[in-house]
Design a protein around this nucleic acid. Structure first.
Length: 574
DNA sequence: ATAGGGTTAG
């Protein structure tokens, strides 16, 4: 179990073969001291006379980079240079990558100057790393410019990874069709695309809800003799699951195995996640068992998904059991794991338990993110603790976390819920972010809040404002507004909105029908109510308890053979 | 024997 001793043992034999074995074992050791162990090995290496080659240092630092300890990696190179050990182009490239990952692309470009100064011939990897650095920094257009400059000035010969990095950048900013163009360009030229470039676009298409286009590209790729790998299948399985096409996903898994590609931990995690999101944690547990039977080890993501699944179902005890289980497996729960638990406890209104975990996170040195705060805020508002919630909101901003649209949604909804209407409106008006003021969802929350706080005129003004800004109301917006108009006696406007909703291709949901039927019945519009009740039932929606009891109250007055009688019989025969 | 890209989570 003592990894350090193991490494020392092999290292002291000074054979490169054994040394590598030592580094490999480092990758697979569990526990939190992996980086420390790597650092000990590094110190040992520095003290050797003569010092090990830069190759061995690069190997060790690559391990540290894989652990995402970028600044540590950079400081090790600094020490290497201080010791007078000459570095090579690999070392420089690794350093550039570290700077890029630390959001310091500029330093990366500074190192590019060293490359030519040291007389290294230009290498694609250097440019690939920098281009990727720009992509990581959301500077995709600059990345494209650098790529063009590379071609124009023939700085080095681009390889599939160069193209792949640009393709990835284009996909990232939503230019999937441009990415596809570049792929076609590769297919036509001498730098043929390999599976990774196809994967990037297939995944992007799946995320753009264009799963069928993704499947088509997958077929074309296979035709061209490029073999799909585990990542290709993962993207497709994920895409299919996301859109309820589980049967096809299952078929895809079979094809995958028949094609000689074995399911990986990631593949199972996609399944586990998908089952959990659908609410069937039992199936997710079965998937975990299946992966263990295949000799695969569930990881933090696997357990986090299960925990989240149980939390969503409100089965907190089960979630806690999984947490205990993962700790026993030497896996360290991360911020995502704890955020799920916080969310679960908040939804169950067990705010103190949530607070405890929130505190525990800080003690463990984990950094709460926006999602953690969102859950806490929602919990605090729901448990009638608006003051603490608003303090926490200030705290998150003070920590440099930028609230998202989601955060403001929780905040406004919570403030209305706790009778802080004017505060909510004032806060909305004071927002500087344009993004927030262009969000129909936030408007819907405000409209709903105003109407429930007895400010229907404000609600109507806000709706007009939304339309004036050219924002698209969604089904929730329409539902809320139809109710507002009806409650204000503006039945005509309500009906008009119902029409507009249809014109705009916005489908009525169960909430729409309940609102309409309730309001129509209140206004004694029985004929209309009947029509909507029938339509509602035909589309598989059921009246909620309010609608149901309103319908039942009609019984003494409806005729034996009336349509309403038939509807009531249908509803009560279930 | 060392570098660079693509999949999974609230």
């Amino acid at each position: 179990m003592n990894c350090t001793r193991y490494l020392f043992h092999y290292y002291s034999t000074a054979s490169p073969y054994h040394f590598n074995k030592g580094i490999r074992s480092l990758k697979h050791t569990s526990g939190i001291t992996k980086v420390d162990e790597a650092l000990q090995v590094f110190d040992e290496m520095l003290q050797r006379q003569p010092p090990p080659s830069i190759i061995q240092f690069n190997q060790l630092i690559t391990v540290i980079v894989k652990m995402k300890h970028y600044s540590t990696a950079l400081s090790l190179y600094k020490q290497i240079k201080l010791m007078g050990i000459p570095t090579d182009i690999y070392a420089i490239n690794i350093s550039i990558n570290c700077h890029c990952r630390l959001n310091q692309v500029t330093y990366g470009f500074a190192l590019l100057a060293t490359v030519s100064k040291q007389g290294h011939p230009p290498v694609p990897a250097t440019y690939n790393t920098l281009i990727n650095g720009l992509v990581l920094a959301d500077r995709v257009f600059e990345a494209v410019e650098l790529f063009k400059k590379l071609l124009r000035e023939k700085l080095c010969e681009p390889n599939p990874i160069t193209f792949g990095t640009i393709i990835n950048g284009l996909c990232k900013v939503g230019y999937t069709s441009k990415a596809l163009e570049l792929l076609r360009f590769m297919e036509a030229g001498s730098c043929k695309p390999c599976v990774a470039q196809y994967n990037t676009i297939i995944d992007s298409l799946c995320k753009d809800k264009m799963v069928d286009d993704a499947l088509e590209l997958f077929a074309k790729m296979t035709e061209k003799g490029v073999l799909a790998d585990v990542i290709t299948y993962n993207s497709l399985v994920q895409g299919l699951c996301n859109f309820g096409r589980e049967t096809e996903a299952a078929k895809m898994l079979r094809d995958m195995e028949e094609g000689g590609v074995s399911l990986g931990v990631d593949t199972f995690n996609i399944l586990v996640n998908s089952f959990c999101k659908q609410g069937s944690v039992k199936d997710a547990e079965l998937a975990v068992q299946a992966m263990v039977r295949r000799g695969l080890h569930p990881n933090v993501i696997t357990y986090s998904a299960l925990i989240d699944g149980y939390c969503l179902r409100g089965e907190l005890d089960e979630a806690e059991k999984v947490l205990d289980g993962m700790v026993e497996m030497d896996l360290v729960p991360d911020i995502i794991t704890y955020s799920s638990l916080i969310n679960g406890y908040c939804k169950k209104k067990r705010i103190h338990k949530a607070m405890n975990i929130f505190q525990e996170i800080q003690n463990k040195g984990l950094i709460s993110n926006v999602i953690t705060y969102n859950s806490m805020l929602q919990g605090l508002f729901q448990s009638r603790n608006p003051t603490t919630a608003r303090e926490l909101f200030k705290e998150m901003q003070a920590k440099g976390l930028t609230p998202t649209v989601f955060t403001y949604g929780i905040l406004f909804h919570g403030m209305f819920q706790n009778s802080q209407c004017s505060d909510a409106l004032a806060l909305f008006r004071s927002l500087e972010s344009n993004e927030m003021k262009k969000d129909a969802g936030l408007y819907t929350i405000l409209i709903d809040g105003c109407s429930k706080c007895g400010k229907p005129n404000l609600a109507m003004d806000l709706f007009d404002e939304l339309l004036l800004k050219g924002l698209k109301p969604d089904v929730r917006t329409y539902n809320v507004m139809i109710r507002v108009y009806c409650q204000e006696g503006l039945l005509g406007k309500g009906k008009e909105l119902l029409r507009k909703m249809e014109e705009n291709g916005c489908l009525r949901n169960s909430f729409t029908y309940n609102v309409i039927v309730q309001e129509w019945l209140k206004k004694n519009e029985y004929l209309e109510a009947e029509i909507f009740l029938e339509e509602m039932i035909n589309r598989g929606f059921l009246p909620d308890s309010t609608t149901f009891s309103m319908v039942l109250r009609l019984i003494p007055d409806v005729g034996q053979d009336s349509r309403m009688r038939t509807i009531i019989q249908k509803l009560t025969s279930v």
